[in-house]
């Protein structure tokens, strides 16, 4: 049993305590935009925000999270896909297969919230998600575009 606040809603779920948050999100709550890629916090496909911090949900036991903590998944990043990062992703035609992109977008959104003007080195250090199709340069260009627009960051 766990009480979680996901995308603004508080939800009771019946699961074993050690169930990773990823699988609670996917299987109990039914939000499948957050992906399973590796299960060992390597690839970042499962990235969600917990109180604004990009977190790999595949190794985070659900028991470690309280109802007070705000979890945001890709489905809750913006009401209709109009977060500046999402718009930049469309503008730059970033995704190829797209499977890693939920995690990429969540990582990028958290990065810019914390560091609105990241250097190339900052981006490389924070964006450690794996993309096998090879969208890295488009990801970087989209992040830099949003940073240049100054639409995100600590108010």
């Amino acid at each position: 049993m766990a009480k979680l606040t996901i995308n603004g809603k508080t939800i009771d779920v019946v699961v074993e305590d050690d169930t990773p948050l990823l699988w609670v999100i996917r299987e109990q709550i039914g939000l499948t935009g957050t992906k399973y890629g590796c299960g060992v916090a390597q690839c970042g496909a499962c990235t969600v925000h917990i109180d604004g911090v990009a977190t790999r949900s595949c190794t985070m036991p659900v028991s470690a999270i309280t109802a007070e903590q705000k979890i945001v998944t890709i489905e809750g990043l913006s009401p209709d896909g109009n977060h500046p990062i999402q718009k930049a992703w469309i503008e730059h035609d970033v995704p190829q297969c797209g499977f890693c992109q939920s995690g990429m977008i969540m990582a990028a959104a958290a990065l810019l919230q914390a560091n609105p003007k990241p250097s190339d080195a900052d981006i490389a250090a924070e964006m450690t998600n794996i993309c096998r199709c090879g969208t890295y340069n488009r990801v970087k260009a989209a992040i830099k575009d949003v940073a240049a627009g100054g639409q995100l960051g600590r108010g």
Binding site: R26, L31, T32, G33, T34, K35, Y36, T73, I74, E75, L77, G81, Q86, W89, I90, D93, V94, P95, G98, F99, Q101, S102, I105
Partner: peptide, 18 residues
């Protein structure tokens, strides 16, 4: 531009796993 991008930015795209 690709025809299939929008749903890949919102989590709506359904893959086999989903």
């Amino acid at each position: 531009k690709r025809l299939d991008t929008a749903d890949k930015t919102t989590g709506k795209k359904v893959y086999g796993m989903d």
